[in-house]
Simulated assay, not measured.
Amino acid sequence: MATRQSTFLGRILAAPSILVLFLWMIVPLGMTIWFSLLRYNLLDPGNESFIGALNYEYFLTDPAFFTALGNTLLLVGSVLLITIVGGILVALLMDQPIFGQGVVRLFIIAPFFVMPTVSALVWKNLLMHPVSGLFAWIATSLGFQPVDWFSNAPLFSVILIVAWQWLPFAALILLTALQSLDGEQKEAAQMDGVGPFSFFFYIVLPHLARAITVVILIETIFLLSVFAEIFVTTGGGPGLATTNIAFLVYAQALLQYDVGGASAGGIVAVVLANIVAAFMVRLIGKNLEA
């Protein structure tokens, strides 16, 4: 009886916070869904009208949507590939006993704590600037023509910036998994004369499978909403070369003042993100069960 009363009391005490959290999520979502069903343009205030699913039809049939979707998938896939492969290599290096190991690890992990806007400004003005950037100075010193990164390879440039930010995260997760590898298993492999490549592919890589799955899941959720790096460096251009779904929604809302169309795009982005997240959760669940 006392247990039931304490459980009931606990639910009553937790109810206000749960209610606030529910309203915090459901009210903005409900308003976005409602706006997505309206013809609502900030340049024509007071003349909103209900148009049903027309905003969704316009957004999903707009050629810019397919370009943005392709850019989003390419951005996510490329960053995942770079961070996982690079993260494994960095984790293997950080796992080696070296002088000043703690300081080295701190410097390697540091980029993850830099704000995306600051990171994008550093890359744009200090590294990739075609006149005064570090890469331009290196190219000129070697007798080559400097590259205007954000004009000639805009999406690749954004991918490099985002990958640089997320590489430390992947390396940290993979290093943690690498350090949990059984020492007896290492000794047995050494006694059996297993080479370094065989040891990596048949022992280390399978051991890192779960950690890699976790990295893919977490990074995918965040990479679907990359915005600051694109806004600061390329502004979605040239043309639509670096426009992803998140930037397309921003452009419709604050550049075209089309609140209805942007709200429909936001709902589409949420649905796509949830589909990807559900798929990744099922994938990681199967991996953990295995």
Score class of each variant (00 low, 15 high):
residue 3 T to Y: 07
residue 5 Q to M: 13
residue 5 Q to I: 15
residue 7 T to M: 12
residue 13 L to C: 05
residue 17 S to N: 08
residue 23 L to M: 07
residue 24 W to A: 14
residue 27 V to N: 02
residue 27 V to T: 01
residue 34 W to N: 11
residue 40 Y to N: 11
residue 40 Y to A: 09
residue 44 D to R: 15
residue 45 P to E: 00
residue 46 G to H: 02
residue 58 Y to F: 03
residue 59 F to A: 08
residue 62 D to M: 10
residue 64 A to W: 05
residue 67 T to H: 13
residue 70 G to C: 02
residue 74 L to S: 10
residue 80 L to A: 02
residue 82 I to E: 09
residue 84 I to V: 15
residue 90 V to R: 06
residue 92 L to V: 04
residue 98 I to N: 01
residue 99 F to T: 10
residue 105 R to S: 10
residue 105 R to I: 04
residue 106 L to S: 12
residue 119 S to L: 14
residue 122 V to G: 07
residue 123 W to N: 04
residue 124 K to C: 01
residue 127 L to M: 09
residue 128 M to Q: 00
residue 130 P to Q: 08
residue 131 V to A: 13
residue 134 L to W: 10
residue 135 F to P: 02
residue 145 Q to C: 07
residue 149 W to F: 07
residue 150 F to T: 10
residue 150 F to N: 03
residue 151 S to H: 13
residue 152 N to M: 07
residue 153 A to R: 03
residue 158 V to D: 07
residue 158 V to S: 04
residue 161 I to D: 07
residue 161 I to G: 08
residue 162 V to P: 06
residue 163 A to P: 10
residue 163 A to H: 15
residue 165 Q to L: 13
residue 166 W to P: 06
residue 170 A to Q: 07
residue 170 A to W: 12
residue 173 I to K: 00
residue 176 T to Q: 09
residue 177 A to Y: 02
residue 178 L to C: 10
residue 178 L to K: 14
residue 179 Q to I: 01
residue 183 G to D: 09
residue 186 K to I: 08
residue 189 A to T: 01
residue 192 D to P: 03
residue 192 D to S: 01
residue 194 V to R: 03
residue 196 P to Y: 04
residue 197 F to I: 15
residue 202 Y to A: 13
residue 205 L to Y: 11
residue 206 P to R: 02
residue 209 A to D: 09
residue 209 A to E: 12
residue 210 R to Q: 15
residue 210 R to N: 10
residue 213 T to C: 09
residue 217 L to W: 13
residue 218 I to N: 06
residue 220 T to K: 07
residue 223 L to E: 05
residue 229 E to I: 03
residue 230 I to M: 06
residue 230 I to H: 08
residue 233 T to P: 00
residue 235 G to M: 06
residue 235 G to H: 04
residue 235 G to S: 13
residue 236 G to V: 03
residue 239 G to Q: 14
residue 241 A to N: 10
residue 246 A to Y: 15
residue 248 L to Q: 14
residue 248 L to A: 05
residue 249 V to P: 04
residue 253 A to G: 08
residue 257 Y to R: 11
residue 258 D to Y: 03
residue 264 A to S: 13
residue 265 G to P: 02
residue 271 V to I: 10
residue 272 L to Y: 07
residue 273 A to I: 05
residue 275 I to E: 00
residue 276 V to D: 04
residue 277 A to P: 09
residue 278 A to L: 14
residue 283 L to M: 06
residue 287 N to T: 14
residue 287 N to G: 10
residue 290 A to M: 11
